[in-house]
Amino acid sequence: MTAESTSATAAGPGALPASRDAPLISLRQITKIYGSGDAEVRALRGIDLDILGGEFVAIMGPSGSGKSTAMNILGFLDKPSGGTYSFGGAEVDHLSRDQLALLRRNFLGFVFQGYNLLARTSALDNVELPLIYQGMARTQRRRLALEALAKVGLKGREDHDPSQLSGGQQQRVAIARAIVTNPDVILADEPTGNLDTARSHEIMDLLTELNRKDGITILMVTHEPDMAEYADRLIHFLDGRIASDASAEKAAPDAL
C-alpha cells in the first residue's frame, strides 16, 4: 500500500476508477427531512456539492445547520430524503444496507468527536476491527494495524485500553482505525471538538499529512476557524443550505 500511495501527488485521486477531473463525490439537490407533520425538521434543503479526490475540505456553520446530517449521508450512514448522490462516478441512492456497509468498509474512514472506540478493547484490537469485517487473515491484520498505529505516533501503546489513553491519543487510535483500510475518504465530524488547542493542532497536522502524503480526501466539520485553516477549501452551511464555498469557482457546481 505504501509504495503506491506515497508516490501519489498531493491532489491525486484515490484508488477508485474515477478520471482525474470527474468528482469523487457528487451531491445533487440532496434533502433530508426528519419527522413529519408538525414535528417535521428540514435538516437539508437541497445541497449541491462536488468534491474531487485528494481535496481537504472544512465544513463550518452554526449549530443545527445540517453539517452532521450531511456528513452522515456522505458517509453512507444515512440515506437522503431526496436528490442524487454519486460516489466514484456511480449512483448510490438505491444501494442496500449491506452494499452501503461494504462501501464504508472499503472506501471510507470515520473520525468522530467522541472517538467512538470500543471500550475495554486494546488500541490494536480497535484498529483491527474494520479488517476483521473485511475477512483479512490475522497475521496480516496485525501487521497493518501496527503500521497504522505507528503512523499516528502510538508505537508502544498498542496494548492500552481507551481508558488508559488521553483524549488526543484516543483520537489518534480512531484515526489509525480510519486509515488502516487505506480508504479514499476520511470523514471527520468535529475531530478536535473534545481536545485542547495544542492537541487539536497535533491532530490537524496528522490529518494534513494523510491528505498531502497519502492523497486521502478529507471532509472535516469544525467550529474552530483555526482548524478550518488547515483545509484548502472551506464550505459554510446555513439553515440546511450551502451559504458559501471558498473554492466554488474551481469546483464548478450548480446543476440547475
Binding site: 449491506d98 456497509a101 464504508r104 468498509r105 469485517y133 473485511q134 483500510t181
Partner: peptide, 12 residues
C-alpha cells in the same frame, strides 16, 4: 458498540 461496528463496515 453495535453502532461502531456498523460504521466501520460490518454487514447485517
Amino acid at each position: 458498540e453495535i453502532g461502531i461496528r456498523l460504521a466501520v463496515g460490518a454487514t447485517e
